[in-house]
Write a protein that binds this DNA or RNA. Structure first.
Lengths: 229, 229
DNA sequence: ACAAAAGTGTTATCCATACACCCATGT
DNA sequence: ACATGGGTGTATGGATAACACTTTTGT
């Protein structure tokens, strides 16, 4: 987990763990996949970067905890959230036994003004292949999130959560290319996406480019299984 | 989680959760996919069935907790274990806030003598489509496990963990058919499996059947990504 | 001899891939 | 007029899917 709050010392005598959530937050910025990180200002990990996270409250579900911490630390409203993996190695947090349920979060809210929580030095987007030194086991957590995202791009309509409500097909393609780190053939990509019947044309076009692109939207916001790759 | 132990009452005042593990244990018995369940003898869920599980110790990782509880409750040695999903809804356990990290467990150890722990009334294998009334959210947990198993059959060599070290190709096919609940074409299945180069012939044959089947083994015990279906 | 499960090939269809040029607009 | 990204079709090869009979053993 990623808070710098001290754990209540008396808790360690009970043979139970503290439960936290962590979030791997991805967004596309200028056609590139980025992760959101916070700079730690205190204690052993001072100067390193961490993914957003924090403890769960007794009366809140995991997803509610994710929403709460994201809203507080970053100001994001309702992004896509899916549980990723639970990290629980005994010594993953030097302050005590912390079991953290990591979540994958996708947002298209890219130019949202980021809010730095008071206990962090900074908050920033980083390219996934140019990560700064990370605290805890957060490198593992981010890589697990990236693998999940890669896998799910191939068989679901999850890509929509990295895009605004309407988008050009070339934007969608650049989501795929950026996440998978490889180029795709434009004609084959468009043929495949259109044949899957998961997007539909709007009557709008992009303004202020060269030749204006047709704007599309996803037909269903619901998660759907489709063979894309 | 699945124990009937009372939670220490004083813990509930601290705003933290108890962490448990649960296990969805699958095995093939007489060509059919079965789940292992324990009968609860006390408290609100008396008479219902539960999957094996229990609390984690402060100095043990999740997988160690899984091995410990399985060994104690069932006598299984070293099965295949993979983390599945974390169930943490506020009211999933009437005794308090219990966050349970569910695991998928596969074993070929089918005629192992099952040991009933003292606090359980019975321990038994059930067909996955003939489940008895279940305690907690264990129906959800089992279904999550089944979905994971189905998905992974399609793109990994995970099926080996449901089979003994050597097996006939028809045994392997019946794993697929039973887990996926559909028939597969024998010739196409064998052609596909052999072309993937994940199994190799041994020089043994099945004894005491009609025409003896050639026995195969998996080449690699390591998890491998292969397009099977 | 017969019952039971093991083993074996070919064909047709579908899908994935590779590939190059014209179009609409802004400057 | 030119620079920029948008948009379009076809041909080939490989994978998948459908399909039925012979073989080996035990009884």
């Amino acid at each position: 987990m990623a808070t710098n709050k001290k754990l209540p010392a008396h808790l360690t005598q009970y043979q139970h763990a503290i439960v936290a959530i962590d979030t791997v937050v991805f967004s596309m910025i200028k056609g590139e996949l980025m992760v959101l990180l916070l700079k730690i200002t205190r204690d052993v990990f001072k100067g390193k970067w961490a993914i957003p996270g924090g403890l769960i409250l007794p009366q809140e579900n995991l997803e509610q905890a994710v929403e709460r911490h994201l809203l507080y630390k970053t100001g994001f409203k309702k992004p896509y959230i899916e549980q990723l993996y639970t990290f629980a190695d005994v010594n993953r947090d030097p302050r005590g036994r912390v079991v953290s349920v990591a979540h994958l979060v996708l947002t298209a809210d890219q130019d949202h003004k980021l809010v730095t929580g008071s206990e962090y030095g900074d908050i920033k987007w980083f390219k996934v292949n140019e990560l700064p030194p990370l605290a805890y086991d957060h490198k593992d957590v981010i890589m697990t999130g990236l693998e999940r995202l890669r896998a799910k791009l191939g068989y679901t309509n999850i890509a929509q959560h990295l895009l605004p409500p309407t988008f050009a097909l070339s934007d969608l393609q650049s989501v795929y290319e950026s996440v998978l780190s490889r180029k795709l053939d434009k004609r084959n990509f468009r043929k495949k996406i259109l044949s899957l019947d998961i997007v539909e044309k709007t009557d709008k076009k992009i303004v202020g480019s060269f030749r204006p692109a047709e704007l599309y939207r996803f037909k269903s916001k619901k998660s759907r299984i489709v063979e894309i790759l």
